[in-house]
Design a protein around this nucleic acid. Structure first.
Length: 423
RNA sequence: GGCAGGUUGUCCGAGUGGCCAAUGGAAGCGGACUGUAAAUCCGUCGGCGUACGCCUACGCAGGUUCGAAUCCUGCACCUGCCA
């Protein structure tokens, strides 16, 4: 048995360990040699989000520690959907699910090494679920599940006790996921499944199935649900999810999300998401305490995570844009090239010369409606090229379009957009 | 299949014929203070119009009425109990 720090120790100090099926057994298991681990991602959306990112970094750390990782994309489970506490899911069409599967596969790829002698494996559970007939499912799989136990799972129990109830479809979800674990156990020797804490019931369903059918033990590791000091889940920006796909959340918006993380939370997130050492992170935490206005920790966090998801080139671009746009200088002083680069990432819209600021706010998406735009101006929350606008009727003149191209429209302190002059 | 209850704005949740674009809370958004942070205080929070105003909205479709989120009918969905 090895004595050095294991992957479990690392997950622990990084705050990525919520619960395991059996701590001691799991430690022995990991110490005994490379382990095969899997985590599933359901294609319920066209992209992955913050919560999935947590799982991806767990797999990444696993692989780096020398273990074999399997990424499962839920072509079948995604057609069902795990029971959400608040509502029955609206089922996606099979086409939608298939399209999402394709997108998610490509999103996952950069996080892991799919080549070499410890290559990660990508599987789709539709491959072994689709051929199964309903009758075989009920006879061969269903017989191993006790409804008494199934209804005690928290996700199911919560729904049974609510007035929403639960459909048979979602009730069955845990069986599908258990089948996945069993299948991977049999075909690839997979013995560990990871997932979010809220997935505990679904994950352990697989452990139970393996035990019952194969008489062997398998393990589950869950990560804590990351919430901020108010108990809100991370990964929401303006009520919208922070996605990993650049066409759903631009790299600029992604970077901005991380740079705005509260001081009290930045250390935790550095541990979870970056490869920084404990010493580096502690130094950054000291920096936050001593010189908070420099936001050193947030800058590192934003840069590291953006690089992880979008690559170093994108990070350089959004860092540069952020420096320019949030700098104190007069944007009119910027040269045309710098300005163009900086605004390229921003939300934008085109406006005709002679349009009002209200038009520009709506066109750029900074305001949802003209009424909202007017209200914002009335509240003193709008500026053009860093000059506050007080007149609702203010017309964008030729001088407002820097280099005859673009006007920098700002809502509040940190929401910027580029109003490009229509030609 | 029967009976009972429910479906309100982003969410929770009031509202039982006019004073309702709809009480209240939360979230969101803006301002002040700051550091693109937190806390706090203030403001705001369906759409169009500068505005008297108009339009859309209280599950869906009809109806009664001068007038309906509020009453009636049908439908859909949800919950519970019974078969």
């Amino acid at each position: 048995m090895s004595t050095g720090p294991t992957i479990l120790d690392e997950l622990e100090w990084r705050g990525l360990l919520a619960q395991t099926t059996d701590d001691a057994a799991l430690r022995d298991h990991f110490a005994s040699g490379p382990v095969t681990v899997y985590c599933g991602f359901d294609p319920t959306a066209p992209s992955l989000h913050f919560g999935n990112l947590v799982q991806l970094v767990v797999l990444r750390r696993m692989q780096r520690a020398g273990h074999r990782v399997i990424v499962l994309v839920g072509g079948s489970t995604g057609q069902i959907g795990d029971p959400k506490p608040t509502a029955e899911r609206v089922l996606k069409t099979k086409d939608q699910t298939a399209a999402n599967v394709a997108r998610i596969k490509s999103l996952v790829t950069p996080f892991l090494d799919f080549a070499g002698d410890n290559a990660a494996i990508l599987v789709d559970n539709l491959d072994w679920t689709a051929p199964l007939s309903a009758l075989d499912f009920l006879r061969d799989v269903g017989q191993h599940f006790r409804v008494n136990q199934m209804i005690r799972k928290e996700s199911v129990a919560a729904r049974l006790n609510s007035e929403i109830g639960i459909s048979y479809t979602e009730f069955s979800y845990q069986i599908l996921q258990a089948m996945d674990f069993l299948h991977l156990f049999r075909t690839l020797g997979c013995t560990v499944q990871t997932g979010g804490q809220d997935q505990w019931g679904n994950l352990t369903a697989g452990v139970d199935l393996i035990h019952r059918v194969e008489g062997r033990s398998a393990h589950v590791i869950t990560t804590p649900l990351l919430t901020d000091e108010h108990g809100n889940k991370f990964g929401k920006s303006e009520g919208n999810a922070v996605w990993l796909s650049s066409d759903m959340t631009s790299p600029y918006a992604f970077y901005q999300y991380w740079i705005n993380i509260a001081d009290s939370q930045v250390g935790r997130l550095l541990r979870v998401f970056t490869d920084r050492t404990a010493e580096e992170i502690e130094a950054l935490e000291r920096a936050t305490a001593e010189t908070p206005h420099l936001r050193a920790a947030q800058r590192v966090l934003a840069a590291d995570v953006t690089t992880l998801v979008h690559g170093p080139t994108a990070t350089e671009q959004v860092e540069h844009a952020s420096r320019v746009l949030f700098g104190k200088g007069d944007p009119a002083a910027l040269d045309a090239g710098t300005l163009r680069d900086a605004t390229a990432e921003l939300a934008g819209g085109t406006v005709d010369p002679g349009s009002t600021v209200v038009d520009a706010l709506v066109a750029t998406g900074l305001a949802d409606s003209r009424g909202a735009a007017r209200r914002l101006i009335g509240e003193g929350g709008v500026s053009v090229n860093n000059v506050k606008v007080t007149d609702v009727e203010h017309v964008l003149g030729a001088g407002d379009f820097l280099h005859d191209e673009v006007a920098l429209v700002r809502r509040g302190r940190k929401h910027l957009a580029a109003a490009r002059k229509a030609s």
